[in-house]
């Protein structure tokens, strides 16, 4: 039984490491703030979830796992919120996402859309 659990936490930790490192690489290589935010924000949450799951398997049904799940729950709520606040701050500071050909896309004006009412 021990080997199965160890193997499971090995797999979870390795998957978490993979996603965490891809997030780090994405943080470096992406062209502008919005795409970096996309890379870092997403893999933050997923990497943390896999890491904590891997540790929880090692912890078994003890208080340790409860604490780990508290950390996971907190990260699930705050990581997207922090990324949203960052995106709000970047958007209001006037920076617009860049298109592939380098032109910044203007704010979406909804004047030509058929009104939904």
């Amino acid at each position: 039984m021990g080997v199965v659990l160890d193997g499971l936490s090995w797999a979870l930790l390795l998957a978490g490491s993979f996603f965490v490192i891809t997030g780090g690489v994405g943080l470096l290589r992406f062209p502008d703030v919005y795409s970096r935010m996309h890379a870092a924000g997403m893999t933050d949450t997923l990497g943390a979830a896999l890491f904590i799951a891997g540790l929880a398997v090692q912890g078994g049904f003890t208080l340790i796992t409860v604490k780990l799940l508290m950390i996971l729950l907190f990260i699930f709520f705050t990581s997207p919120t922090a990324t949203y606040a960052l995106a709000n701050a970047v958007w209001s500071s006037g920076v617009r996402p860049k298109r592939r050909d380098g032109t910044a896309c203007e704010a979406i004006d909804r004047s030509d859309e058929p009104s939904k009412s």
Binding site: I21, G23, L27, V33, A40, G47
Partner: peptide
């Protein structure tokens, strides 16, 4: 693996052109 990612984030915090890159890297 975590250490490597932290170094990458620090690199982005150092290089990051705008202020918000640095905030993202520190977060």
């Amino acid at each position: 693996a975590l250490l490597v990612t932290m170094l990458l984030a620090l690199l982005r915090a150092y290089v990051g052109p705008t202020l918000y890159d640095r905030i993202l890297a520190v977060n």
